[in-house]
Each structure stands twice: as structure tokens, then as C-alpha cells.
Computed example of a mutant assay.
Amino acid sequence: MHAHATLATEADGRGGTRVGVLRSGWPLLLRRTLPSPDAAPAAAWAARTADPVRVHLTAGGAAPVGGDHLRLDVSVGPGGALVLGEVSPTLLLPGPRGERSRLDVTVRVGAGAALAWLPGPVIAARGCRHRTDVRVSLAAGARLLLREETLFGRHGERPGELRQRLRVEADGRPVHDQELAVGAPGWDGPAVTAGHRAAGSLLVADPAGVPAAPGAYGRDAAAMPLPGGTGVLVGALAPDSAALRRLLDAALADLTAPADRGPRDPAAAPLPDQPSSRSPSTSR
């Protein structure tokens, strides 16, 4: 199966944002949606640029399956704001002939625009062979908030093969380029995932500055500045999806805090089920 979906938004000239192109390609279905409580912090962050438009991606069928090639193009016009989410997790499944599936995502955020992108968790089921390649281009003054969550197999199963690459460029210069390979030799060793069942990250890029993360997310997480002071990346490992989401939600609250409030005090509000160590590891 080959499918291509396109989403483009633009500023409406009245402090808001409108959808210019909303073209689905089954099974990639794009839908305008109402505000969601789960996305409220991200939406408030995006609203510092303009009143955001909200769109969710939903799967019209089981996908991707081995052999599928899916493409998604997203464009946020200058001065606009978009909150992009997903209705449900993505389950990567093997195909009948052992072929590899692929998802290519190209994102362009125009000058002075903002994108808050909260995709659902990706679950690498046993036997899958999949590659995801995400390329994000930020124009001058553009802002980006991106959360990623990956689960290594369903309950009680070993994952298949998964390669995920994320590359972000700001004003033509690379600020982040990372690839995670699951199922390759050593993927669950101490230098990569250390036997954890879930991995994720939260990236916030903002030329106006990002609040400093407190760094007390536990021994299996790290907060790292992006080059040139353009933002912060929090990378994390966790035993399960619930623990990973709690950690990333705490990072989201920190990195989107208004300038007059500052980040959370980790001593006053420790994360549940997290070690007390204040020395984050870079084991990922």
C-alpha cells in the first residue's frame, strides 16, 4: 500500500490560524478537532504565537503493515500555529512476505510560526520491519514542540525491527539529528536502552528561549541543550508507557512554563516512581 496525506495551515490575518489544505490518503486520515485537555499545555504554548488550529491524524485501517509506504507532509504557514495530535497509538505489524514498511514525514514551519506535535506512542510488534524518517525544517523565528514515545513490543513480546530517525533544522542549520535502531544487535544493551521497555523524548525549540529544565527526571533521563541555545531536548527511558508519559508530561510542564513562573521545583513536586538521584544518565 502507498498513501500520501497533506496538511497545510496559514495565518488568517486576525490573530488565528486556518486550514488551507487537508488531504487524507487512506489509511492516513486527517481531521479538524476540538481542544483536548491532554494537549492543553502544548496548545497554550502554541497560542503564544497565534490562536492555533487543531488537527488529529487517525488510522483508517491497520497500518503500517510490512510493505506499506506512507507519506505525510505538514506545512505551517508564516505567523500561524498548529496543534497536531493522533487519535490512537500506531501499531507496527509484519507483512505477509516479510517486507519492510516505511513512514516518511516532512514538516515545514514558516517564519514566526509554531507547531506543537504530539503523536501517539509507536508500538513495535513482534516480527515488524519498519523505518520512520522525520525531517523538520524551521524558518527564522519558528517554534517547535515535539514529543515522541516508542514501546518495544506489546506486553510480554520481543519487538521486531524498527529504525526511527528525526532531523530538525532551524534557519537552514541542523540542531538535532538522532536515530534509534530497535532489534539490531545490542539494541537492549546498557549503551542504548538498558533493557527498558519504552523510550521517548520531548524537544522544544524556540529562538526566544526555553525555560531551563531542572534535570531531576531520574537516572534514566537527560535534559540537553540544543546547539546555539535554540532549545532543549529531554530524552528518557522507562519500564512502561505509563512511567514514560509521566516523565514527559513533567518535562512538558517545565519547558513550556511561562517566563514569569519558571520550571517546576523538583524538590517540592518529585516525579512518581522516579529515583531520587539528581544525576541524569545519557544511557540512551
Rank of each mutant, 00 (worst) to 15 (best):
R143D: 00
S24K: 13
V74G: 13
R143G: 00
A42K: 04
A11P: 10
H155K: 15
L144G: 03
R31Y: 01
G120D: 14
L82E: 07
G16W: 07
V136A: 15
A59Q: 01
A11N: 05
R147N: 05
A114N: 04
A81H: 08
G25T: 01
S36I: 04
R108M: 03
A39I: 06
D12A: 08
W26M: 13
R32A: 05
L34D: 08
D73H: 15
A11I: 02
A47M: 06
V74D: 00
G98L: 12
L138Y: 07
G79Q: 06
P119Y: 13
L145C: 11
A63M: 06
V136S: 11
V19Y: 00
V109C: 12
T106S: 15
P89Q: 11
D68G: 07
R18K: 06
R97A: 03
T106D: 15
L93S: 03
V107R: 08
R18F: 09
H69L: 09
P64C: 00
T150I: 14
T132N: 11
H56A: 14
L70V: 00
P119D: 12
R54E: 06
H69T: 02
S101A: 13
G16V: 02
D68I: 01
E99H: 08
A81D: 02
A40H: 15
D68R: 08
